[in-house]
Design a protein around this nucleic acid. Structure first.
Length: 477
DNA sequence: TGAAATGTTGGGGCG
DNA sequence: ACGCCCCAACATTTC
């Protein structure tokens, strides 16, 4: 009889799970363990993230149920991972610990400490490839997305036969092994946690000839249409295998009924690769968590404006598409990617507030909040990161609304004050003549905020601030 | 995975 | 008929 510990972290699934598979290959009895680690749960990023914690705890409950169906159970322990695992190894006589390798700075430090004392085996799974396996000819890591994705796709691609099926039966861990209760998940949101739900969503998105994945190239940009996969929370906690997602994208590219449909599936693959890209960037450049990747833009004169920050957070900037997106985020813990770009651009380029304030707020609000992707996205928008949007690429919140929510359907859903505003004014309500404001029951300044900044002026202000930061950096070098 | 400013072109009104 | 101007539409450059 041999025993191995399967240490779950960001792989709350049974299907296509290399860590579970490793443990099963090593031993006949596998002890599934989740550690409630104060180093994670009470960290700056996760302390206030009530919705994400609830999603995690719900995911643990779903996994516990799935394990019980297969004759096993989940052992939950609170404490420092090294101490918890050391005593579990002693109690169970386990000869190995298997876990999915995680590339964030905290995780690497934690795992190094565990590996120094215990037989820890790290497996693939959080990404399809290892960060060290996609390198330039010179040996260095890619810092520009397009050549990165080209190199990624030139390597041998995974296929359906590479996916590891979920085990049908598992030996139960020792009966006397104590488990803490999974903390109650009391927050409600539109993302039912668990692997089964992730599989349903993947099927909804990608199965069939008329699947949304085939319209994804255009559909993903529309705020008023459910054109995205809405799988990010599931990928965040490994309730869905990234490899299964990539295999699905590749197979839909092959089976697409038209050229446009193929482009849709390929665009989704590209989004999955952005995820890998930013995880790799954080692995190679962990300092991006606090610092701009671009040294020339580390000293922008950000404004200090707590009222502006609150207006942004609460969705009262006076720009309908910004406010709708911020309210969607606050209500649901999720935001369309187009919406993320619009509100991020507004915070950084219209309010000239430090992108780190937005990064922090997103981490508190997002069910899918992940340090790598979130930091990468914010640095991209701020124009300070790897392969970033040039700093002068500034979104116009009016045009973005008109382009991606032409009838104002999305805006009206989350900003009910604008429900009866004519389409013509739905993205520029301050332009309504007073009589129209009254007819619409939306008087600017009374029922809905006047714009807190004028976009054209804000744009000039930001261009000047960035130019100045760059010039100063050039002088100092 | 921008938008604004500036430049170019060509149709049509008009003297 | 012809040149001139206006300006919309599109292209290119700039931020």
């Amino acid at each position: 009889m041999t025993t191995a510990i399967w240490w779950l972290r960001r792989d709350l699934r049974l299907s296509d799970n290399p860590a579970l598979h490793g443990a099963l290959s090593h031993a006949d009895t596998v002890v599934p363990v989740f550690v409630l680690d104060p180093g994670v749960l009470d960290s700056r990023y996760h302390r206030h993230a009530a919705r994400r914690r609830a999603f995690l705890f719900g995911g643990l409950q779903a996994l516990e149920a799935a394990l019980r169906q297969r004759g096993s159970r989940l052992i939950v322990c609170a404490g420092q991972p090294l101490a918890v695992l050391a005593s579990l190894v002693q109690e169970t006589g386990a000869t190995a610990i298997y876990a999915q390798e995680d590339f964030s700075p905290y995780a690497r430090q934690r795992d190094a400490a565990v590996a120094a004392a215990l037989p820890l085996h790290l497996t693939a799974g959080i990404t399809v490839r290892h960060p060290d396996d996609v390198r330039k000819a010179s040996g260095g890591p890619y810092t520009v997305f397009t050549p990165f994705s080209r190199a990624w796709r030139a390597l041998p691609l995974p296929g359906a036969s590479d996916l590891i099926p979920a085990p049908e039966h598992l030996h139960a861990p020792p009966g006397d092994l104590a488990s803490a209760a999974i903390p109650a998940a009391t927050v409600s949101f539109p993302f039912p946690p668990g692997e089964a739900e992730a599989q349903r969503r993947l099927a909804r998105f990608a199965d069939g000839v008329e699947a949304p994945i085939f319209d994804y190239a255009a559909g993903r940009n529309r705020l008023d249409v459910d054109g995205t996969s809405a799988l990010s929370p599931y990928l965040r906690f490994g309730m869905l295998s990234p490899r299964q997602a990539v295999v699905t994208a590749l197979s839909r590219m092959a089976s697409a009924p038209s050229k446009a449909a193929r482009a849709g599936a390929e665009t989704w693959l590209t989004e999955l690769l952005w995820r890998e890209f930013y995880i790799f960037i954080l692995y190679h450049f962990p300092h991006v968590l606090g610092l701009e990747f671009n040294p020339a833009l580390r000293h922008i004169a950000w404004r200090d404006d707590p009222d502006g920050l609150s207006a942004w957070q609460e969705g009262r900037t006076g720009y309908p598409v910004v406010d709708a997106a911020m309210r969607q985020l606050a209500q649901t813990g999720w935001l369309h990617n187009r919406g993320r770009m619009i509100v991020a651009s507004f915070l950084v380029k219209d309010l000239l507030l430090d992108w780190r304030q937005g990064e922090q707020w997103f981490m508190e609000q997002l069910v899918d909040g992940d340090p790598a992707a979130n930091n990468g996205g914010w640095q991209w928008t701020a124009g300070v990161g790897t392969d970033a949007a040039p700093y002068f690429r500034i979104f116009n919140p009016i045009l973005q609304g008109q382009k991606y929510d032409p009838e104002g359907k999305f805006v009206r859903r989350y900003v009910p004050e604008l429900a009866h505003v004519p389409d013509k004014y739905v993205h520029t309500p301050w332009e309504m003549p007073l009589a129209v404001q009254h007819a619409a029951g939306c008087v600017i300044g009374r029922d809905y905020a006047a714009p807190i900044v004028e976009h054209a002026l804000a744009r000039e202000r930001t261009l000047a601030a960035y130019r100045q930061a760059q010039e100063r950096a050039a002088q100092n070098s």
